[in-house]
Design a protein around this nucleic acid. Structure first.
Length: 475
RNA sequence: GGCGCCAUAGCCAAGUGGCAAGGCAGAGGUCUGCAAAACCUUUAACCCCGGUUCGAAUCCGGGUGGCGCCUCCA
């Protein structure tokens, strides 16, 4: 069974067949670097990073390109507001992007191109469109002529007629048609600009993605991804430019993620409900945030609430505890310990069930990257592993099968091992106190034993008694 | 006005023609000196009205409610 994915272009789920067997050319729209990225951006980055990871897991070699839009009105505004230069703003927020993205477990792209690094290619591309009659020049502005491209509207499934009837399109005297859009914008005084055949100016928004996509991946690629709100006009315009330019199909599969809402409403500055990913990262483990973002299907709306995030904390902890408990069992089985004498378990049964869980996980992910179902499969693995742990005879082979499975599946989702908390007590001190407590318990001095446990808990160390001895972890 | 999406238990969220996953929260039990962890059992759901069908949460039509895009917002 192959991977099925929902293609915005066709409006259907389709089997994924790459242009070149075993290889995937994947372009994901990146941030405009004028600020930290908000949780909606974070959702998009995590969603497509996860899809990329899964494609790699399924054996594809993925060339993943994610751009930085580093020339834009908002960057200029920010630079003016801060009294600094646009390059400084862009560089700063590219750095900040990596800080948050790395924390969220988002893999670095194969290439992270910046629009300003492709100005000559952009100018050439626009020049070609002018030459072939797809674009027209008005002073130092260049516009794309949408009426020259018959397929215009095929991605967003609307016609130019529909758009004309909409009264919200600004009428720009220079444009031949309200649906036309800028490829090259004449420089305004004081703005960063580049020389071009049409005069000083800078690229329009849409052209950079078309150019960088073809520059790094070729003019026909497998996947192009972004938020649903980019379908129109951004991606529609990219198709028009790229296909007018190349004369053939630009992208085979268009993937779009759903919106992230806050308490049921769209994030907006006027509502004051903007959530920066950074702010969440300061208060919660990054993997909990990632887990939360993956808890719904990527195409569906995801509603952020404090309670929802709290539920993600609990869910993530259930998985982490299972890993910890499996690891403790293995430590307790260490050769030389009395307990290991009693173990007889070749792990076959656990391995079979682990394989079954893996199959469920893969089936879920094959079905348009259904991470919610995939996470359900992980929980099934957790339950089965915990059930095994209930049996004192279950030993190294079984626990290893479960650990291997859970680590494998978590890593596909980019949810790696728990982070180590700050350490206020050394492991040796903890072990010593556990030994003291054990002695107190042996002489049935439970008051002393409980005090030791409480002392450790006050320092963030939790003790749990098991048949194999006392296990501990830092909270 | 045009285009489109969504509605499943207290909460989150899969499923999309054949006995309604999973997580969180709740209840009971087992284990334990106690606690924790864990396991077992359990409570509880397909917005409304029509239609198609042997059979609909799932398909079609109509409502109601919520949301998105049509503004260089992911």
């Amino acid at each position: 069974m192959s991977i099925q994915l929902y293609n915005t272009l066709s409006g259907k789920k389709e089997p994924f067949v790459p242009l070149h067997p075993g290889k995937v050319r994947f372009y994901a729209c990146g941030p405009t670097v004028y600020n930290l990225f908000h949780l909606g951006n974070g959702r998009m980055f995590v969603a497509f990073d996860t899809i990329r990871r899964y494609l790699e897991y399924r054996g594809y070699q993925v060339d993943y390109v994610q751009n930085f839009t580093d020339v834009d009105d908002k960057i200029i505004q920010r630079a003016n507001a801060d009294g600094t230069g646009v390059r400084e703003i862009a560089n700063r927020y590219i750095e900040e992007y990596f800080r948050d993205a790395d924390a969220l477990g988002i893999k670095r792209a194969t290439v992270h191109p910046r629009a300003t690094e492709s100005i000559p290619e952009i100018i050439r591309f626009i020049g070609d469109l002018v030459t072939t009659g797809y674009a027209y020049v008005r002073g130092s502005n260049v516009y794309f002529d949408t009426s020259a491209f018959p397929g215009y509207g095929k991605l967003s499934h609307r016609s130019v007629e529909d758009m004309r009837s909409g009264f919200r399109i600004d009428v720009n005297e220079e444009k031949q048609d309200p649906a036309d859009f800028a490829l090259w914008k004449a420089a305004k005084p004081g703005e960063e600009s580049w020389p071009s055949p049409w005069g000083e100016g800078r690229p329009g928004w849409h052209i950079e993605c078309s150019v960088m996509s073809s520059k790094y991946l070729g003019d026909e690629i497998d996947i192009h991804a972004g938020g649903q709100d980019l379908i129109f006009p951004h991606h529609e315009n990219e198709i028009a430019q790229s296909e007018a330019h190349s004369g053939h199909q630009f992208v085979h599969y268009w993937l779009h993620n759903g919106p992230l809402n806050i308490n049921g409403e769209k994030m907006s500055k006027s509502l004051g409900n903007f959530i920066m990913t950074r702010d969440l990262l300061l208060n919660r483990p990054a993997r909990v945030i990632r887990f939360f973002l993956l808890s719904a299907h990527y195409r569906h709306p995801l509603n952020y609430t404090d309670e929802g995030l709290e539920q993600a904390v609990q869910g993530m902890e259930r998985i982490d505890r299972c890993l910890r408990n499996l690891e403790f069992r293995q430590a307790a089985l260490h050769p030389g310990l009395e307990f290991s004498q009693r173990v007889g378990d070749d792990g076959t049964h656990a391995q079979q069930r682990a394989d079954g869980v893996r199959s469920e996980f893969v089936a879920a992910m094959d079905d348009d990257f259904n991470t919610a179902d995939a996470i359900a499969a992980i929980f099934e693995g957790v339950r089965l592993a915990n059930t095994d742990l209930e049996d004192a005879r279950v030993g190294l082979a079984s626990t290893q099968a479960w650990l291997n499975l859970l680590r494998e599946l978590l890593s596909i989702l980019g949810l790696h091992e728990p982070e180590l908390a700050a350490q206020s007590v050394s492991s040796a001190d903890i072990e010593a106190m556990i030994a003291q407590r054990e002695a107190a318990r042996k002489r049935r001095d439970f008051a002393a034993a409980d005090k030791l446990r409480q002392d450790l808990e006050n320092q963030g160390v939790i003790l749990e008694d098991t048949l194999q001895g006392t296990r501990w972890f830092r909270k």
